[in-house]
Design a binder for these strands. Structure first.
Length: 475
RNA sequence: CGGGGCGUAGCGCAGUCCGGCCAGCGCGCCUGCUUUGGGAGCAGGAGGUCCCGAGUUCGAAUCUCGGCGCCCCGACCA
């Protein structure tokens, strides 16, 4: 097995190594595309099941819309087509003939969905319409990176229609809150919820909300977005409803999504030089048991003891007994560590004799010995402790690299090294935002929801500002 | 699309400058034996359109021309 490049040596190689070693994904024989392997797909399925439950609990239902979008649909909303058309794959031929109208492979589904909503919505009684779709989308990116940016990726996209602006706004914020809860409670990844600037908002949206996370190289990663689309798409697709007074009104809309990029976020938040570290709540395999023996007699004895112990967890834990004979224990330890299994149970003759087992936690490597009759609860406790300490550690890391900065010189000095999140004053002007990006490669990640009101002067132009924004280099 | 690098066994590479020896090395894989509390040892074995095409030559992985692909760095992006 290959060694994993150290983070300190080459962060992006480390990232790829972790993915390859854990067998999460592989490069596909198609430019810019990846194969998500079973270990990676299992994480996605876990993400899906949790989020899907959360969406359904808030009244959303799943549906499926076509992969192909007629070109004319894409052109209906001006900002939208301008934002997306350059990065779209377009089908011009089918069945051996040139198509009358080119078909865009969806980069996102607002247009095709709103074309349908036009037929489905007539009355205020049809609202709200709360639909989600799990699917793939294609964006012809120039530079790709496993999970973070590939030509095709998997995601969910919610598309909702509402009678009032206030309702749409509430929906957009409610979903962002779901994303935040998921990121923090399941991924153990702290995020900053806030609003995108005009420059960074979704093409066609009124407002975009985002959750921003800090990776271990101190760069920001946009982990999920929720858009208040206003009436832009309703106007573009002529979707009106009749209100209680019999008057025709344009519908208010939202859309929101998270993608397989979350798996990249997971890796870059928790993993270490040994390989993948998974928060227990997203680990598909929680415990691996490694029996240890010398000689054939002991082998059968230890294998049996390991299976007996593990079988008592059936239905309570997901586990695997690694009783392969061709590999030595040390090899297995490394292998399971690189795959991110949160807890390892070692069971050797010494342990068996004392009716004990050895527990090793993946995040810290700490080992403890516990009596076998208490092992199930010990593992359960350990899993919870790993979950919460991963979050705590990530939060401490983010706080350590979050700087309150007022001077542009100081900003420029620190943005590359050490890097991180910079809380800075900004006048709100696009020109200053552009300049910041040009001169430092940093962008305004968001205007945090919970920022305190504070009088200050714009980092760039010195004009007044009434609160700080988060600036960082981003993926 | 601009800059850089690379295509030789599943993976990582050497050989290419300066043409000729059986196309090699490490890891992995298979078989056997010994091992097994932190990446085992020995022995044997399988595995190749040397990216593709054309050319030069008695002879091409190596030289020439053309093409294709991938990776990394930039601008773009979930």
């Amino acid at each position: 097995m290959a060694k994993i490049t150290k983070r300190s040596e080459d962060y992006s190689r480390w990232y790829t190594d972790v993915i390859m070693q854990a067998e999460l994904a592989d490069y596909a024989p198609v430019k810019g595309c990846m194969v998500i392997r079973p270990n990676g797909y299992a994480i996605w399925e876990k993400i899906q099941s949790v989020l899907d439950r959360m969406f359904k609990e808030t009244g959303h239902r799943n549906a499926y819309f076509p992969l192909f979008i007629p070109e004319s649909f894409m052109r209906r909303e001006a900002e939208h087509v301008e934002g997306f058309a350059p990065e779209c794959a377009v089908v011009t031929h089918g069945g051996g003939k040139k198509l009358e109208e080119p078909l865009y492979v969806r980069p996102t589904s607002e247009t095709i969905i709103w074309a349908m909503y036009k037929d489905w919505i007539q009355s205020y009684r049809d609202l709200p319409l709360l639909i989600n779709q799990w699917c793939n989308v294609v964006r012809w990116e120039m530079r790709t990176r496993l999970f973070l940016r590939t030509t095709e990726f998997l995601w969910q996209e919610g598309h909702t229609a509402h009678a009032t602006e206030a309702e749409a706004e509430e929906e957009a914020r409610k979903i962002l809150q779901i994303y935040r809860t998921f990121a923090e409670e399941y991924m153990a990844m702290p995020v900053i919820p806030g609003q995108k600037t005009e420059k960074e908002k979704f093409a066609g949206a009124l407002r975009t909300y985002t959750i921003e996370a800090m990776m271990q190289d101190r760069r920001a990663l946009q982990a999920g977005t929720s858009h208040n689309l206003g009436q832009n798409f309703a106007r573009a697709f002529d979707v009106k409803y009749q209100d209680e007074n019999g008057e025709l009104q344009y519908v208010w809309a939202t859309s929101w999504g998270v993608s397989t990029r979350l798996i990249g976020a997971l890796i870059m938040t928790h993993s270490d030089d040994q390989g993948l570290v998974l928060p227990p709540r997203l680990a598909t395999l929680e415990v691996v048991v490694v029996p240890i023996w010398k000689g054939d007699d002991e082998m059968s004895q230890m294998k049996e003891a390991a299976h007996r112990l593990a079988d008592s967890w059936k239905g309570k834990l997901t586990y695997h007994v690694d009783d392969r004979e061709g590999y030595r224990p040390g090899w297995k330890f490394n292998e399971w560590e690189s795959k991110g299994v949160p807890v390892r149970v070692e069971l050797g003759p010494r342990d068996l004799q004392r009716n004990e087992a050895t527990l090793v936690r993946r995040d810290t490597g700490e080992r403890t010995t516990v009596p076998q009759d208490r092992i199930l609860e010990a593992i359960k406790d350990l899993l919870e402790d790993i979950q919460s300490s991963l979050f705590r550690r990530a939060l401490e890391f983010r706080e350590k690299y979050t700087f309150v900065v007022d001077g542009y010189d100081e900003f420029k000095e620190k943005i590359d090294e050490p890097g991180g999140f910079f809380l800075v004053h900004w006048c709100g002007d696009r020109a200053c935002e552009d300049r910041l990006q040009e001169e430092t490669k940093a962008t305004i990640r968001c205007i945090p929801f919970d920022r305190p009101a504070e009088r200050g002067r714009c980092l760039l132009c010195g004009r007044p500002s009434d609160g700080r924004v988060v600036a960082a280099k981003a993926y």
